[in-house]
Design a protein around this nucleic acid. Sequence first.
RNA 1: GGAGAGGUGGCAGAGUGGUCGAAUGUACCUGACUCGAAAUCAGGCGUAGGUGUAAGCCUACCGUGGGUUCGAAUCCCACCCUCUCCGCCA
Length: 429
Amino acid sequence: MLDIQLLRTQLDTVAERLASRNFVLDVVAFQSMEDERKTLQTRTQELQSRRNSLSKQIGMLKGKGEDASAVMAEVGGLGDELKSCEEQLGALQTRLNDFLARIPNLPNEAVPVGKDESANVEVRRWGTPRVFDFPVKDHADVGEPLGLDFDMGAKLAGARFSFLKGGMARLHRAIAQLMLDTQTGEHGYTECYTPYIVNPDVLFGTGQLPKFADDMFRVERGGEDGQTQYLISTSEISLTNMVKDCVLKAEDLPIKLTAHTPCFRSEAGSYGRDTKGMIRQHQFDKVEMVRITKPEDSYVALEEMVGNAEAVLQKLGLPYRVVALCTGDMGFSAARTYDLEVWLPAQNTFREISSVSNCEAFQARRMQARFKAETGKNELVHTLNGSGLAVGRTLVAVLENYQQADGSVVIPDALKPYMGGLEVLKPQA
RNA sequence: GGAGAGGUGGCAGAGUGGUCGAAUGUACCUGACUCGAAAUCAGGCGUAGGUGUAAGCCUACCGUGGGUUCGAAUCCCACCCUCUCCGCCA
C-alpha cells in the first residue's frame, strides 16, 4: 500500500510514476473521495466531540444529584445527524481503502523504465551453455522414461499437475534439500516450517488480496461455514507475515527466513502458456528467502539475496543470467526486482527460475510491520523476498542440461550427497 | 465433538455504566545523586487518524463485528482466538 499522504501531497507525480508500470491511477476519483472524506470526517468528529463533552456534563450533574434533563435533550438532538455522518464516513473510508489497496507499489528510481519484458536489462551472465552432439530433448521427453508422469498428474488432479516417482521424486527432493541447506548453512537464513493454508488478512499483507484473488486456491473446512482460507501461492506469504502487527526492536533486524514449501496457483489467465511440461504448474515446490530490514539496509540486502539465489545455480553448474526487470514487468508489491533466468537448451533460451524483489515499505504498511527506530519513533520495516530457487523449474533445468545421448541424466555433483548413491537416472525398460 | 477458564498498553496485571486512554508493577527514555555503575529520587513513555506554520486541539481504538444507552473496557448478541480436562484422530 502506498502512503496516503503521498497521494494527498503529490498526486500527479505518483500517477506519473505508476503510469510507467502500466497502471492508470484514477486521479479524479481519488480527489473527489478525498474532498468528500475531508468534510465528512471533520463534521463527524465535531459532532462526536460535542456528544462526548455533553455526556460528561450529564455524568457530573448526576453525580452531584442535579437535574440533567436539559443537557440530555440537547445531546439527544445530535443523534440522527451523528449516526448518518458516521455511516457515510465508514462507507467512504471502506471505498477509499479498497481504492488504495489496489494500487501497486511505486518503482524505485533505479528501475529501468519500459512497457514490458522486452525492456528488461540484462545485468550479467554466468556459465557457458553446453554444446550437445545429439538432438536435445525437452525435459518432458527426457523425464517421462525416468519417472516424470504428467498423465498420472492429470488423472489425479487435472491439467498442470504432475506425479514423480522413483529417482525422479528423489531428485526433486534432493534439489530442495540442497537449496535449503545452502540458504541455512551458508547464507544465515533461519529455516521455517509454515502453514500452507492462511487467512485472508495475511494475503492482504503481502499484496495477493484483494486484487489477485483469482490467482489463488480457496479452501473451506468440511462441515463448517467458516471463513474462507487460501492455499499459499508462495511461502513469501507465510514468512513475511510473521512480522504483521509487530513493533520490532531495532537490534532484531535484519530477520532472514527461509522455508521449503509447496506453492499453489490457479494460473487463471495463463491458458495456453507453457501448457506442456513442468514449467507452469498449479502445485510446485519452492525454497523461499525472506528478509525484514531497516529501510536504509534494504538495497544492499537485495543484491545479497540475488547472490544467495545465484549460489544454488552455480553449485548445480547451470548457466544463467541476471535480469533487472523494467517498470512495466514488475509484480504488484515490488519496488525493484531481479529475475534469475536459467538456460534451457531445448528451448534455446533463458527461463525465469527465481525472482528477487525489494518491496520497500509497501507490504510493511499493509501489515503494520514496524520497528522502534533510534529516534524512538516506530518506522515501517522494508520487506524483501526471493526464490532460492523454484524446485520444479530447477528439476527441469537439471534434466535438460544434464541429459545424455542414451536418454539418461547425470546427477550434478552437488546433488550426489542427497541421492543415496544414485549417480545417473536411467530410463526404465 | 462435549465441559470449563480466559483474551486490557512492550510485558505483567487492576478495573462490572459517568473526568477511564485506562491504576499499579516492570521494561524503556531523560534528569538528579555518583569518579563511574548499581541502588534511590523526580519527570516522561501506547497506536492510528483529522486539523493547524507551530504550540496545540480534536476523533477512534481495552480479541472482532453488531446492539442497548445521553454515555460502554464494563451490560446484551454473534463470531474468532488461546488455555485446561474429556472424546475422536495421523
